[in-house]
Design a protein around this nucleic acid. Structure first.
Lengths: 125, 125
DNA sequence: CCGAGAATGAAAACCATTGTCATCTTGCCG
DNA sequence: CGGCAAGATGACAATGGTTTTCATTCTCGG
């Protein structure tokens, strides 16, 4: 693992929310651990390919990343304000998806299920 | 409704797949019906706000739009190649989402459920 | 017919992301 | 140790979708 990858992973292990590349870069800068923006992007790409990070896009189209606790397939309940997320599993949905695909003769690559709102902390504030 | 909105809506009523702003612009151009790219973006924005179009982002982060048959809340089975989509309802999922949000004290704004793959036509080709 | 307010679109600005390339590390072999 | 090859790094430029700006053009009520 490269220096940039270690730095990014450390940051995301610390925070544990969905964070954008630019945010990660800024935070690393602020904490003295200086890594170029390009390297942050490369590290995020590599770690995501490696399955160590989950990626999702915000409503605005910005990519955000999170270090998840489970390496199993799961979905997220995400706070649109702070990025805090709860990992959830939905076996019933998985089955429903598979059946549906078969019915319509689609070859499925993936599916997404996300619940977006405000966590209790952000809702109160 | 403005000229641009009529043109965009006509195009999307014709095609009925998820299409990007740039694609719509190109198609209108090609069909003689010339509308500026800016106006296409504005029309898509307005029509989406109006609930006349459904929007989603491709994996690459590009926004795509579709004229759906149902104005009820529904989800999509989408072909990542050609944009063809099947509208599906999932009452069980809706309920599950609501319960989950309550459990975790999240104030829910929205949720997304998408199934991405290849339609039978694209899979065969 | 007139004028105000909306619509239009070309061009510039934006901004996240990716490519380029010269430099710097690092680990290995002699 | 040296030194070299492969990979990593990061400043900078380029890309590409989207939004802003702004001057011009419609449109429609009075």
């Amino acid at each position: 693992m490269t220096r940039a990858q270690r730095a990014v992973l450390a940051q995301l292990t610390n925070d544990r929310a969905f964070v954008s590349a630019q945010d990660i870069h800024a935070r690393l800068r602020r904490s003295g651990e200086s890594v170029g923006l390009t390297s942050v992007y490369r590290a995020l790409q590599a770690l995501t390919d490696d399955g160590q990070l989950d990626a999702r896009r915000t409503d605005g189209g910005e990519a955000t990343y999170r270090r998840c606790g489970s390496d199993q397939h799961h979905h997220h309940l995400v706070c649109r304000q702070c990025g805090a997320a709860v990992e959830v599993e939905a076996p019933a949905v998985e089955k429903w998806v598979a059946d549906l695909a078969a019915t319509h003769r689609y070859v499925i690559d993936a599916h997404t299920l996300e619940i977006i709102g405000l966590c209790s902390r952000c809702a109160d504030a």
